[in-house]
Design a protein around this nucleic acid. Structure first.
Lengths: 332, 332
DNA sequence: GTGAAAGCGCTAACAA
DNA sequence: TTGTTAGCGCTTTCAC
């Protein structure tokens, strides 16, 4: 097996000391142009690459950032991770991405992996079963800054990056009122206790109650995406069916649309539909679904920007959010 | 800032040597049960964790596996990565995932990151612009096994894991003949030179030519997913339009379906459709699209199994493939 | 059953 | 301008 080139080997071949070689390669001003030249040439020739393990041990930095999300296979997280990866790459970092499902244990295990790999910083969107935030908050104590995003702990003092959840739900509610909807089936994925669900459901309900007090709201939560098709199916077939559906997220849009299609209803004539979405899915349907966009892309970029601030010493805790925008389709 | 617990600190507090402590923690048989007990207790108390950087340096292993794919946001790769991640996690490894787009330069940079981070093994699906495989093949020389998957180099001797591309395309072709289609628009994403495209296009064409020589095939390649909607649109509006469309992949299915919907055609009456797909997307439509499944999930698990074989010394080069299955929808 | 010591490859303070 | 030295935290050989 071919051996790696090391500083020591270079030093021996050149009749220099290890430290001189090291400095020459880093363009340290002390080193004479001549030696610098010689060193660099041999380094090139022998394909020298600093041994990351050694550098990490010495500098106590890994140049790796961690991301813990519930799911990879989720439009929002995909966009978030892709954008984050791009930003992070520019700054010379790499990403270690782990998924937890909705299991608090897996999440704890993932957190442990991050600690073990000594990531330089961590981005986390928690599971809906995460009750104890303390293990996360220990990381900043040992020098690993942590940025929560999207699904964030409610009360703790920590860095949080979210969508303007209140605003997004309010926008959707207003749009439904504008179309004069009187009976809305509202679908939420995950537990009511989840921060996003709580905020959005409250804002949605309040807005409707204020602007159109007589509108009937039928609010449903379910952990299992499978449930939404039968739920919607059933509601659509009652004698007094809803005249509009609100889907909080892409996951729900899929089964809801399926139920609408199976019921042979057409949008917007027979039923109205509005979703909060990452943006891709609504355009697949015909007519396209009207939605409030909460795009992972922007959130990813913002998250890294915030981490850099923390690296630069701006360690005071902040809560940032990204505005939501309404994208008109033809479903309302 | 809180300090990490180390072997040295434990040793000092216990009045033992570093090596004894190290051995005690690894249940080395030499160590007496009593000391082992004492050591473990203090380790627990001080939340001792071996410093990965030091372990890596010492053992020259990272316990990290690399994955390089063109895109994260691609159903096939998502499933592949998710499955791989699961398998890999069970074996105590973590995944470092990087995306290259279709840029050979980005890919080279990614390869470099993998090398720098001294991953213990690497999974790669190449870009369509990758011409030089040699930089990849250098990794096995320095002890990093590499497994190519899906998009694999054509001629080199290396480990490859693919779908049964020939079989998948043949299945789709047969199914079209069975439905008596006479004029098929065939859509391929990426360059014709891409291994997957080459194999599938050839198999598809041959099968049709053999079973139904009079059937007209209109085969189109495009690098840009955007192109497929106008292409399909245009073809559907010619005086002699196709009676079926074959989509080689989920990416193409989306714009093709959009063109069908915009043209107000219904499946299967006005137009037939079959796709090669990862499986989720076809079920979103109504009727569901008939497809040949090439699921990333299975491929991910197989890929890790193969890597483990290589770790275990079975280093002879192998080319493995996964069978394809037809899933009936209502689009044909 | 335990300890001493070397060394993985690198960085950086201090010396010359 | 260059070299010497110490040390990051761990594993492992050899000695007692």
């Amino acid at each position: 097996m071919k051996q790696f080139s090391t500083l020591k080997k270079l030093a021996e071949k050149l009749g220099l000391s290890v430290s001189t070689v090291s400095r020459a390669l880093k363009d340290h001003p002390d080193i004479s142009p001549a030696t610098r030249q010689r060193v660099k040439e041999l380094a090139e020739l022998t394909e020298y690459e600093p041994n990351t393990f050694a550098v990490n041990l010495r500098t106590n930095k890994s140049k790796i950032l961690g991301v813990i999300v519930p799911y990879f296979q989720n439009l929002f997280y995909e966009y978030f991770i892709a954008a984050l990866d791009e930003e992070v790459g520019k700054a010379g970092y790499s990403l270690l991405v782990l998924q937890s499902g909705e299991s608090a244990e897996t999440e704890a295990r993932n957190l442990h992996i991050m600690k073990k790999n000594r990531v330089d910083g961590l981005f986390v969107s928690v599971t809906e079963n995460t009750v104890d935030i303390k293990p996360f908050l220990k990381l900043p104590e040992i020098g690993i800054p942590i940025i929560f995003f999207d699904r964030v702990p409610e009360f703790e003092a920590c860095d949080k990056i979210c969508f303007a959840d209140h605003e997004a739900a309010t926008l959707a509610a207003k749009r439904l009122v504008q179309s004069n909807k009187k009976h809305v089936l509202c679908l939420f994925w995950g537990k009511p206790s989840l921060s996003v669900n709580q905020k959005r459901a409250a804002a949605f309900e309040n807005t409707i109650k204020q602007l159109s007090p007589k509108t009937i709201l039928d609010i449903r939560f379910s952990d299992s995406v499978q449930d939404f098709e039968p739920i919607t199916m059933h509601e659509l077939q009652t004698p007094n069916p809803p005249d509009a559906i609100f889907c909080n997220g892409d996951n729900i849009l899929i089964p809801a649309m399926r139920a609408i299609q199976k019921s042979k209803l057409t949008m917007p004539a027979d039923i109205g539909l509005i979703a909060i979405s990452n943006g891709m899915l609504p355009t697949l349907y015909n007519p396209a679904v009207t939605f409030v966009e909460t795009n992972g892309n922007k959130l990813g970029r913002l998250a890294f920007k915030r981490l850099q601030e923390v690296f630069d010493g701006k360690t005071f805790v902040r809560e940032l959010s990204i505005p939501a925008t309404l994208v008109e389709g033809g479903s309302l």
